[in-house]
Every structure is written in C-alpha cells, then in structure tokens.
Amino acid sequence: MASLAINQSNYLSKSMTGSKKTKKLEDSILFSLAKEEAGAFEKLVDQYGNLIWSIARRYLSNQTEAEDAVQEVFIAIWKSAGRFDPNKASEITFVSMIARRRLIDHVRKIYRHKKLEPIDDCFDDDALQTKSILDQSTDVKIISEAINQFAEEDKELLSLSIYQGYSHSEISKLMNIPLGTVKTKLRRNLIKLREIFNQDQHSIVSINNA
C-alpha cells in the first residue's frame, strides 16, 4: 500500500493551488523531527498524543488495536516529517491526515464498521490541551464555520460519514435516503467545503499582503 507521504507533495500542491501560508517551517515540531533534533519526537507525542489517541478510539473500540494503531501512526509521522511544508498545510492538518489515513487502513484490515461506544467524560486539564490546539488552528475554524452554514441534513451526513465512520450504505439506512443521494450529497458537500476553504486561504493571504 502506498504511503501517504510519497504522494503528499502532489496531493497538497493540487488541493492548495494558489494559496500561500506565511508560517515558518523552522517553528514546526515536524521540522525539528526531520532534522533529528533531540527531544523532537517527545514533543510530537506531547503535542498530538491526546488528539491522535482520541481519533484512534473513535475508529477502534478495542484498546489493543487502538494502541497498536497509534504506535504505527506516530512512526509514520516521524518517517514523513521531512515532507512537511507549512506553505501547503498546517502542522495539525498534516498530522491528522496521516493519522486518519493510517486508522482507516487499519479498520479496513480488521472490519468495516465499529459501533461507536459512548466515551466516558474525561474533559480534564490534559484533554483541554487538545481543545486548545484545535482552537488555535485557523484551518479548523474556517471549516467549522463553513459546516455550520450547511443545511441540517448535510451537516448530519458529513458527521455520520467523516466523524462517526458510517459507510454510505449505513448512512442511507440510518437517514432513510437513497444510497445514490448519499453519495451525491457527500461528494458535493466535500467539494463545496474545499472550495470555501481554498477561497478563505486566498482571503487570508490578501489581507496579509495588503
């Protein structure tokens, strides 16, 4: 199976065409990791450990499978660190793309869909750190605002598919809408989200360059 990292530059250059970020590569943990600086890997785990573990637990209810998968994710991020370009995507986006790709592949190996068990409330200080990383991400905020503008049915569709991990046929049964409609709506919504995101990136650049 091809590594996400091998096609990373192709993928990012297509989807972020024309947009520029002004972040410095040197400020990123991934840059330090690629340079094999002492302590960089530990910083990576400190910064993103909670987030990646939380994502893994949504995909994999089995603790052992989730632990295995998270270890693989961190090794994959380490191996891909040299390909990170902050002009193409934020660090959190890069990290979460690798995490989701690895986790979806892991699920593909094991089973199609897991029943999402309710997770105990553990919104403590350490978990707040994840919230604060996400809060600080401009990219996440743009997408969040864009999703909030969608119709309720479209928001529900996106949540069931992207966040809750239901397949298209499962969503069709849950929402009682034809499978073809599910596929069409998801495709259109994601294309629209991507357009909004790219437009907003252009706006940010224009404001920064004004």
């Binding site: 972020m16 637990r57 793309m97 992207i162």
Partner: peptide
C-alpha cells in the same frame, strides 16, 4: 488517491473540537 484527505481531516477536527466527550488523554 488523497484528493479529499485534507478536507475530511479538517472536518473531522472541527467535529472533534465540538465534541467534548471525545477528548481523551493518551
């Protein structure tokens, strides 16, 4: 192959941000 990976990751993060119950600690 990774055409929608970025946007779905961002959407996932956005839902994750709003879902307090899913913020686990490593």
């Amino acid at each position: 192959n990774y055409e929608f990976d970025e946007i779905t990751s961002l959407a996932h993060m956005s839902y994750h941000l709003d879902d307090n119950r899913s913020h686990e600690v490593l």
